[in-house]
């Protein structure tokens, strides 16, 4: 599955974010290198929601963190409008920070426990000003109301809120700087099911209201489908399949995508439940297999999968790309 290649890049004027051949590596110990992300390419159009789905260790969070430069980039480029974020540093990078904001999985531990929530939300504005070099309490109260937190509670601290409310505060904090792109790393995974839908609806409302572009990372296939226009399926640092959300779930081509869809408790009707029985364990990202990275577990594996890495190829003329030597057609 190792898909590389630029086929899924659509280009055009409305591209807000373009990630090309992104490679991220982490050194472990003296000699070893974790190949967290290996040559992934995708783009996001303005106003679009891109979902990234995959199992733990597939590199989806690393991709998200690379976009906001929370980790070093070993190769490739991350273009935001006309800027290559991978090449920027210092003041030039900092000046773009308000445009790219992030919300995290654990809403409580990702916010400062010692600050009042009003201060947490205002912190970005204190640093940046809200356009006029000042920030007003009204603006914070308005933000709190928008995300569904009573401004009366602005003097409380984060631990006095439930997980769902804390995630709303995290969203308000990110929105305070009027970002263009909001990166959401598993924003509902730690929340109870009854609260999850509230947050997903809120994100959808905020997207409309502020004209946001979202990058949404989750391991939950149903959640990703619900929020996304376009989805990337990742495995061991590579993209397997990219495409329009509905199309990808209706006609999954990659054996790994199919395995995921067949593994969930109520399998998707487009796959056979037995396709979820993939063998073995995910290989170590320190020494990923050559050729296709999914070959050690793939039921369709052949000699070419061992020798050659599959390139991303378009399926027909639709917005659907798969990196597999033996894509499944049903």
């Amino acid at each position: 599955m190792a898909g590389s290649g630029h086929a899924p890049l659509r280009g055009g004027d409305s591209t807000i974010l373009e990630v090309e051949d992104l490679t991220v590596e982490f050194r472990v110990g003296r000699r070893d290198v974790v190949h967290a992300v290996s040559g992934i390419s995708f783009d996001v159009l303005e106003g679009e929601t891109l979902g990234i789905v995959g199992e733990s260790g597939c590199g989806k969070s690393t991709v998200a963190r690379s976009i906001v430069r929370l980790n070093e980039i070993a190769g490739g480029s991350v273009r935001y409008l006309d800027h290559d974020l991978a090449a920027l540093s210092g003041a030039a990078l900092r000046s773009l920070r308000p445009d790219l904001q992030m919300i995290f999985q654990d809403p409580i531990s990702s916010l400062n426990p010692r600050r009042k929530v009003r201060e947490v939300i205002a912190e970005g504005l204190v640093i940046w000003g809200d356009g006029q070099g000042v920030w007003s309490r009204d603006r914070i109260d308005e933000l709190m109301e928008t995300v569904g937190i009573d401004p009366e509670f602005g003097d409380r601290r984060v631990h006095q809120f439930s997980g769902g409310q804390a995630q709303r505060i995290g969203i308000a904090r990110a929105l305070a700087l009027d970002p263009k792109v909001l990166i959401c790393d598993e924003p509902v995974s730690a929340l109870d099911v009854s609260v999850q839908a509230q947050i997903l609806n809120l994100l959808e409302d905020m997207k409309q209201r502020y004209g946001l572009t979202l990058v949404f990372i989750s391991h939950d296939l149903s959640v990703v489908k619900n929020v996304s226009d376009r989805i990337i399926v990742m495995y061991l640092g590579k993209a397997c399949e990219i495409g329009d959300a509905d199309l990808l779930y209706e006609q999954p081509r990659h054996p790994y995508t199919r395995a995921l869809l067949a593994s969930i408790p109520q399998p998707a009707p487009t796959v056979d439940e037995s396709e979820g029985d993939i063998s073995g364990e995910i290989p170590s990202p320190v020494s990923p297999p050559g050729g296709c990275r999914f070959r050690t577990r793939c039921p369709y594996v052949s000699a070419v999968c061992i020798s050659d890495e599959p390139e991303m190829q378009q399926v027909g003329d639709s917005d659907h790309y798969v990196a597999c030597h033996h894509p499944v057609v049903r």
């Binding site: 099911v193 009854s194 619900n226």
Partner: peptide
């Protein structure tokens, strides 16, 4: 709960409150 057979962007029906 979002269901996999629903089209993307289907509006969810959350339980209010907590």
């Amino acid at each position: 709960i979002p269901r996999i057979e629903q089209p993307s962007h289907a509006r969810l029906d959350p339980i209010p409150g907590r």
